[in-house]
Design a protein around this nucleic acid. Structure first.
Lengths: 208, 208
DNA sequence: GATAATTTCAAACATTTGTTTAATTTTGTG
DNA sequence: CACAAAATTAAACAAATGTTTGAAATTATC
């Protein structure tokens, strides 16, 4: 499927509305209005609402895959340096693309669209396999401990970050922070990265 | 509102369907059929679909509040013992009530039902305040380090557990586990608890 | 600039949705 | 048993939904 600028313009608004109302809660009329196009354009461009969601996934996920592989293979970096970069990049990306990560989260709960589920499943397993390699490298170099549960470790990274996004406002209130949204998000990302690095050191048995 | 056995029977099926299809994806007809009651019974018993969701929340959340407070106040336990019990109970409960935790997760993403959002918000802040107390107790007794980010710590507990539930099947596949669901879930809960305790030791600076 | 292809649009379409109705059955009460 | 209250039902209702249609407007091609 060829994605034009018009596609992107619609997908952008669809993403926002799917994230704030869910797939079933966001109507094609809402999306069309938000994107400033006629209702019929959504079927015209994507075929259906469901296929629009699939297009959104293929569009967003294609932009996610590349970096991890090249990071893992990079021989100039020590294993824990790679872990640190991984955390930094992951936290940044989730904060930057909050809407899409919210959609991904809901889609994991609601097992309906098989195309989306398959994309998610492939992403997850390939991700886990790459990190597995990284762990093994660290173990071979005697800087990580034995018996590391890769999946649980990843659950901690993705889960902590996801919760941090969902609880943003509570975090601000609970810690009495008075700053405005953009600088608050910078602060939260910073705290999150430091937090996750402490946690990962413990999980990996790394003594930096 | 008086909740009878009939209410509970309907809420039980509503919970399952909300968890697997989302609030908007699960129709009142689906729910009525699954519960073996007439379509009109849902309005008759709850007033509306939305109020049924609110009834589900008040029903399930009332069963969650009690234990944490008594745990924190218990003077016979050391701070980190309390943390361990907290982790154990939380992980158990999420695994036991998977459907409801999935619904809670989606409701946090989709900000629609204000009654539900308010209940979630109150739960979260009261929870954070109780844990805050526990942290302070540990710091006063010099067994926890200074400058602990309570909210991020809780995000790690809830987020890791949530992700573990959502990724159950991938965990099984990735680790080549051949056992059946019930015993697999026992194993997963075990792994999760151990994992979280390692993580919390690092976060709290506890040297057990 | 004429013709063809593409894009846009308002309107209509068929379903599905949550909810209500009004009649019927069941249950409780004296 | 008789009567009232509560529970259950099938049918109907209005609104909302995703999708299609066929005409009009715009753009591209020669």
């Amino acid at each position: 499927m060829v994605i034009t600028e018009k596609h992107r313009q619609i997908l952008q608004k669809a993403e926002e509305l799917f994230a704030s109302r869910g797939f079933d809660g966001a109507t094609v009329r809402d999306i069309a209005e938000a994107a400033g196009v006629n209702l019929a354009m959504i079927s015209y461009y994507f075929g259906s609402k469901e296929k629009m969601m699939e297009a959104l996934f293929s569009e967003r996920m294609s932009a996610m895959k590349i970096r991890v592989e090249t990071l893992i293979k990079n021989e100039a970096l020590a294993p824990f340096q790679k872990v640190e970069i991984l955390i930094d990049e992951y936290v940044n990306k989730v904060m930057e693309k909050q809407s899409f990560y919210k959609i991904m989260l809901c889609e994991q709960v609601i097992n309906k669209n098989s195309v989306v589920l398959k994309a998610l499943s492939e992403l997850k397993l390939s991700y886990a396999n790459l990190i597995q390699e990284l762990i093994k490298e660290g173990q071979a170099k005697k800087v990580f401990k034995k018996n590391i549960d890769v999946m649980l470790m990843l659950n901690t990274m993705t889960g902590t970050t996801t919760q941090a996004i969902l609880n943003k406002d509570y975090y601000k209130a609970f810690n009495n922070l008075k700053m405005k949204t953009p600088e608050f998000e910078v602060l939260l990302v910073d705290k999150l990265r430091i937090h996750l690095k402490v946690v990962f050191k413990a999980i990996l048995g790394y003594e930096g």
